[in-house]
Amino acid sequence: METQLKALAMKKVALLISDNLLPDGPETRDDRFEYVEEVGTLTPALAAEGIELVSIRWRDAAAKAAEFDAMLPLMVWDYFEGNEAAFLSEMAKAEQTTKLFNNFKVLKWNANKSYLDELEASGAPVIRTVTVDRVTEANVTKAFDKLGTDMLVIKPQVGGGAWRQVLYKKGDPFPSKDQLPPDAALIQDFLPSVQTEGEFSFLYFGGAFSHAVLKQAKPGDYRIQSLYGGTETPYTPTSDERESARSVLDSLDFTPLYARVDLLRGRDGRLRLIELEMLEPYLYLPHAKVGNDGLNKGAVMFAKALAKRLGR
């Protein structure tokens, strides 16, 4: 009887995934193993809080919303490939029926990286960035002058995983149209520290710090994603580094269920914000510590924060 009551009391939560994470599909991502690892780590931690995790396609979210107590768009790794409007529409419809974490307002705001301008205005330590409606040789030339650099990173305002991202050195042939962002873009100062030191990711669940990793590109590259040969290692940040990351979250007027703060070392030695991921960040849970109960401590923190929001 006790087991039956416990089963009835279980909350059911959907992990929304993109089609390119489905097994054996024609466009299955080479980094699908990250999805498998994350599900394997989150599932037992959530179960310990009375939450069942079920993976479904994000394109089915609205149709299946009534079956779930909440939905997590943590693995929608194609929303930026021309799918932004369809994705946001699907999330808006799903939120009319069930809870969405992070909520639709946050997802819509975070989907477009022009949010960096707002964060900088709020006092967050943002990397120097020029936002443009589209990339042209003229505005890239102006960006070189404005940022005082001879190397730029040009990336889509709506994008991820280095998709349609270009590293461009002053004087080189201008990149072709199919290499550049298709629409609005960010033009950022290229920081050499991404190759000499690496990029940092700080993970927060329910507003509390969980763990951090140092992500490093393979020799000769600057992209830190595993798709391009990048690697990650656990990292213990200094108090100053923790403060830099915390200042980003403190610039918000809300507390997200989950957030990943990605930073690079600036030319002044301070950490600078590259992105604040609150839509579909990989959580790097394999690099969080494991407790005496055998559960991943990062996953446990996530599960407890989610359970609190579900009223468990």
Rank of each mutant, 00 (worst) to 15 (best):
P73N: 02
Q225G: 07
P175E: 00
K12W: 01
T238A: 02
K6W: 12
L285F: 10
Y168G: 04
L285K: 10
R59C: 01
G311Y: 03
S244R: 13
P182H: 13
I274M: 11
I224V: 15
T43Y: 02
E199T: 09
K142E: 15
A299H: 11
F302P: 09
E120C: 07
V248A: 02
D250Q: 12
P256C: 02
Q195K: 14
A121H: 05
L252S: 05
Q195Y: 06
D30C: 12
P175H: 00
V248Q: 03
V126M: 01
T97C: 00
H287R: 10
N296S: 13
L53D: 13
D31A: 08
V106D: 04
I17M: 09
K108V: 11
P173R: 02
G298L: 01
V300G: 02
P237G: 00
A245Q: 04
R272Q: 11
E241A: 00
I187E: 07
A47Y: 07
Y258Q: 08
T236H: 13
L107S: 05
T28R: 14
R134F: 06
L119Y: 11
A9Y: 12
I274T: 15
A259P: 14
K11D: 06
R272F: 08
A14M: 04
E27P: 10
G220E: 00
H287V: 14
L72M: 11
A14W: 03
D189W: 13
F254L: 06
V36Q: 12
Q216D: 06
M75N: 12
P237E: 01
S251L: 03
L16R: 04
S239T: 15
T136I: 06
D268K: 07
K304G: 07
R242V: 01
V194Y: 06
E52V: 13
G50F: 03
K93E: 10
G25E: 08
A184I: 09
R59Q: 14
A62P: 08
E197V: 13
N102D: 12
L306D: 07
G207A: 06
D69N: 08
Q4L: 15
A121C: 04
S193F: 00
W77G: 09
D293K: 00
P256Q: 03
G148M: 04
A121Q: 14
P219M: 04
M10R: 08
Q216T: 14
R312T: 09
D189V: 10
M71Y: 08
F254K: 11
T98Y: 05
R32D: 09
E275L: 04
P286Y: 03
D189N: 11
I154Q: 02
G294D: 01
P234C: 05
N20P: 13
A66N: 00
P256H: 03
E137Q: 15
A184K: 13
D117L: 15
